[in-house]
Simulated assay, not measured.
Amino acid sequence: MEASRRAAMRALELDNELAEAWLALAEIQFDYDWDWSRAEMTIRTALEYGPKNAPVLRQATWVALTLGETERALEFAQLAVDLDPLDYSGLTNLGTTYWALGQPEEEERIYRQILELYPKAVSVKSFLAAALTAQGNPEEGLQYLDFDSENRWQRTMSTIVLHNLGRHEEERPIRQKMIEDNGRHWAFNIATTCAWHGDPDKAFEWLDIAFEQKDTLMTTLPIAQWLAPLHDDPRWEKILAKMGLLDYWKDMRGKRVGEEQ
């Protein structure tokens, strides 16, 4: 990571207006340093020099989402798709933005569009299954899941969908296999399954592991819909505080409550 940081800084020494170099630096500050304010400033600079640079817009989406700027996040994600309507990364970014915003109907629409273009997109199939489950249609979601898949999202969403259907004898071995085969690399995903299955102690145990491992998925804590069962547990705010995300999450939650009233 430090080599990547040095490379980005060297590129900026040669060309201080290179959007790609500012993007590389923002990604390090966001995914690895967890320095939210600095990442926000850096991605703004990248946007200044690359306002129509799709990778810059995608990273700007995630920075905005994590910091609770949901309207700006959707604008960035949509603009990236407008620039290249067939781009897999851009479409997936838009779909996951709708997931973060709690709009499963729009999320479903985007994922179906992606699968028309990329029918073998395994992760997207799992996201579609999750979107359907969020709308109360887990049975329909099953057709997009492969319980024997090695894909982390296929396994994660398989446990969630099966749990929603009450098929616990089928989901338990999948979750156990996640732990046995990929516990060192899938800590955040395992925490997600534990949270949704009503085991907060195990969920926080795995979140602590993800924190220590600098799991990049920890940056999604404020927007992770499947971790909602943990929100009323006092340990939830503690881990957000450790991440430096507590104030952002509280602001985001306050906005949503205001919108619902």
Rank of each mutant, 00 (worst) to 15 (best):
E2L: 09
L14G: 07
N16A: 09
A19E: 11
W22D: 15
L23K: 10
A24D: 06
A24C: 11
L25Y: 00
L25P: 13
L25H: 06
I28H: 08
Q29Y: 01
D35H: 12
S37R: 10
R44Y: 10
A46W: 05
Y49R: 08
N53L: 11
E69Y: 06
T70A: 04
D82C: 08
Y88N: 02
S89G: 07
L94G: 00
A100N: 04
Q103E: 10
P104R: 06
E106C: 03
R109G: 10
I110N: 05
L115C: 05
A130M: 10
A130F: 03
A134L: 07
G141A: 06
Q143T: 04
D146R: 05
F147S: 15
Q154N: 03
R155H: 03
H168P: 11
K177F: 10
K177V: 01
I179M: 08
G183V: 01
W186S: 05
A191W: 04
D201P: 08
A203F: 00
L207E: 01
K214V: 09
P222H: 05
A224D: 09
A228F: 02
D232S: 06
W236Y: 12
I239Y: 13
M252V: 14
M252Y: 14
M252D: 02
R256L: 12
R256W: 14
G258F: 15
E260W: 09
E260F: 02
